[in-house]
């Protein structure tokens, strides 16, 4: 096949899971509608046919039950992939995923690990209203003992998911329903493994560092295009995982640009964005021309109405405003 094969983000996720399941019989997938329905969002399409119902497991709507069950299985050394149809539905499983999985190794003094991947759709943008639009990274990344990965492109979706499945610790893998149809070049086969904690420079620039992850990376690229026309050159950094966080790449960029805007789709208070801003202030105190500006979703529950939701998101317009303010071009 040509090196320029393009597939959708959802296909990249499926390839990662299927390849890892072929490689390691301990890996299995469970969740609502993953098998016979081929996945609520068709991520697991065809996997039941290949791997059978013992490894692609349909569950009832019992997130707390099946997440807890998978954690138990992981304590025995299996490698479950738990699909949440949406991370919004993981809240009813908050106790197993936050209170058990990330603490098991510690509580047991190193005896029982928890090699598990929790994955599903995260974030607003589909007019799903207040209860279905969670960006759980704000809340969940607070918990030590987990890794959290938020891929923005199909190749990273595959490479990071493969790494997640091979990882011996619990990995929270945040996808986006808004990006499942996004197409991009993804290498075939086994080679693509993307390590955690390594940012990727999506666009080089000299005047302002835009640091982001997940879907807002695309808003940043859109904003960078618009700002280029105004003569402001932005460097867009995609962190890819926020635990571990590649602060070094951001610091190197800020030392060059002297300006930093953090774009995060979670709410601003106590968020990964506020953490990143604090770390940039700590490491770049003498390099910064302005304080680190931040663009988040509005500090209100997610609204349903189309126009309100668009306004709510950390969209390109709001990013442009923040960059102009941070670079004294407002």
């Amino acid at each position: 096949m040509s090196a320029l094969r393009e597939i959708e983000y959802r296909d990249a996720l499926r390839e990662a899971m299927s390849e890892e399941m072929r490689r390691d019989a301990k890996v299995f997938l469970l969740g609502e509608e993953v098998a016979e329905y081929n996945g609520a969002y068709k991520v697991s399409k065809g996997m039941l046919d290949e791997f059978g119902p013992r490894r692609i497991i349909d569950t009832p709507i019992s997130e707390s039950g099946f997440a807890g069950l998978a954690i138990g299985a992981a304590m025995q050394g299996l490698r479950p992939i738990v699909e949440f149809m949406s991370w919004s539905f993981s809240l009813v499983a908050a106790d197993p995923i936050l209170n058990n999985a990330p603490k098991m190794l510690y509580m047991s003094g190193g005896q029982f690990g928890c090699p598990i991947v929790f994955r599903g759709n995260d974030g607003a943008g589909g007019q799903l209203g207040s209860t279905h639009s969670w960006c759980v990274e704000g809340m969940f990344s607070n918990v030590p003992g987990m890794k959290m990965v938020i891929p923005a492109t199909p190749d990273d979706a595959k490479g990071l998911l493969k790494t997640a499945i091979r990882d011996d610790d619990p990995v929270f893998f945040l996808e986006s329903e808004r990006m499942l149809g996004l197409k991009g070049h993804v290498p075939e086969g086994d080679e693509i493994l993307v390590p955690f904690g390594q940012a990727r420079i999506r666009r080089e620039g000299t005047d302002c560092t835009l640091a982001s992850w997940g879907r807002p990376v695309h808003f940043c690229l859109e904003a960078a295009d618009a700002l280029a026309k105004e003569g402001i050159s932005c460097e867009v950094i995609d962190l890819r995982s926020i635990r571990p966080l590649d602060i070094g790449s951001v610091v190197r960029s800020v030392k060059k640009t002297s300006v930093c805007v953090v774009v995060d789709q979670s709410w601003s208070f106590g968020s990964p964005g506020s953490e990143l801003a604090a770390q940039v202030h700590r490491h770049c105190f003498d390099d910064l021309d302005n304080f680190v500006h931040r663009v988040h979703t509005a500090d209100v529950p997610s609204p349903y109405a189309f126009n309100l939701e668009q306004e709510y998101l950390p969209n390109a317009r709001r990013i442009c405003e923040a960059v102009r303010a941070a670079t004294y071009n407002a």
């Binding site: 709507i61 919004s88 539905f89 809240l91 009813v92 007019q127 799903l128 209203g129 207040s130 209860t131 279905h132 609204p303 349903y304 109405a305 189309f306 126009n307 309100l308």
Partner: peptide, 30 residues
């Protein structure tokens, strides 16, 4: 998603609330 909706367009299809008729909502999480 309009202002004359029962929740001024903020709730949407899954969240019908009507205080005068003692309708305490549609709720989205199963």
């Amino acid at each position: 998603g309009r202002v004359d909706g029962c929740a001024k367009g903020k709730g949407g299809s899954m969240h019908m609330f009507d205080k005068t008729h003692n309708m305490f909502g549609g709720h989205g999480i199963v």
